[in-house]
Design a protein around this nucleic acid. Sequence first.
DNA 1: ATTTTGCACACTGTATACAAACTGCAATGA
DNA 2: TCATTGCAGTTTGTATACAGTGTGCAAAAT
Lengths: 223, 223
Amino acid sequence: MATYKTRAQFVADDLRGRILGGEFKGGTQLRQDALANDYDVSRIPVREALLTLESEGLVEFHAHRGAFTTELSVAKIRELFDLRVLLETYVLRHAINGLTDADLKKAEDILLKYDKALNSGGDIDNWSEYNFAFHQALYAPAELPETLSLISQLNTKSDRYIRMQLVYTQEIEKAEQEHHGLLELARQGDADKACELLKTHIQEACEGIVALLEERAKQPETS
Amino acid sequence: MATYKTRAQFVADDLRGRILGGEFKGGTQLRQDALANDYDVSRIPVREALLTLESEGLVEFHAHRGAFTTELSVAKIRELFDLRVLLETYVLRHAINGLTDADLKKAEDILLKYDKALNSGGDIDNWSEYNFAFHQALYAPAELPETLSLISQLNTKSDRYIRMQLVYTQEIEKAEQEHHGLLELARQGDADKACELLKTHIQEACEGIVALLEERAKQPETS
DNA sequence: ATTTTGCACACTGTATACAAACTGCAATGA
DNA sequence: TCATTGCAGTTTGTATACAGTGTGCAAAAT
């Protein structure tokens, strides 16, 4: 199942994980030769992987100078989260009437599974996946694939910063509670309240990140 | 100025134009070798160009089987246009208060320039560019680059169908009138009315396209 | 006659090799 | 001293060559 088809895809998937995991600080150059050695492939699939990541906004190409990891300004982070509010409340509103019991059960399963993982010495590494899977489970019944794809893009771009926040603050429990609240409102079919909760859920995460970044900006380099 | 940096970028830009121009019908395979001959380059830059176009949604890769042009279902077209309404009214509302005289003048210049081109035996080929330039001129003052980027994506994906409609119906004049109306409302700073007009402007274009596609679906292949 | 197996062809995916562009430093000149 | 030019090293961008996978037809078997 997880047997990757092409080397380029494998490199792209792994490298994405490394970037999102914070292995490279913003603006560092990704040398094709070094990556090719890392993965024991030639530079061709590495280049193709970097192009893929460029289209996802994780990397920027400068002609004849190579690929550099991107770094988002506070203004751009705010913009991304505002877009998430706009698009995610939009799909949630469309999805909420068509939610079947099976859909709700699926979302709940994901939630409980992560609750359990959280209690037994939770891993933050795959929190992003759980988080995204939960949201997608709620959004899927809207049957708006293009919209979900845009939302996925926005999540990928903001993922690094969300993780950063989770490492430095202990907001996961709060987010989990909000997820439970969201599920309950969805079950009741209360679109207005659900969207309102979703909105604050996203906005508060944004503010947490911004606060962290601005605090960090004050301090000189600590490496 | 227009001296392209890399061959891959040149191929991507040109090929995008050919796809949007309707040279390939939906689902046709784009053979790397043939394209490499067309552009007198090797397959490497061709592959990279195809990857770029894949990220724009114009092409789909199937592992070991190559790249195929995409074709959108009516449902997806409707979804794309609904997203355009959502995002474009969002930015217009943000932009409309900050519009300077210079911004308005710039938008008007674009409009008048195309009016003139239209009267002297108008070219449809570059209508897409004019159209997009006009909308961007109105949206730019919002200073929401990520949002504009998403809008640009949506426009690229739907561009083929817009052109198709313009070829078969004579809606350009109507669109031009709506553009003038939009500019006037923007000048007055009436965000509500401007967004309302923008919404119907987009929605009517969508319905025109859908009608055309459904009509065409009834007829057998006429080639 | 229908299905199956195998093989040959075609095309994609990737490695290797080469050309071109950028970077930094050193030498030269004002 | 400071700016400028030229050169060498490094890295990217691309061509060529090879390996691997999918496709279709033909021959063989039931």
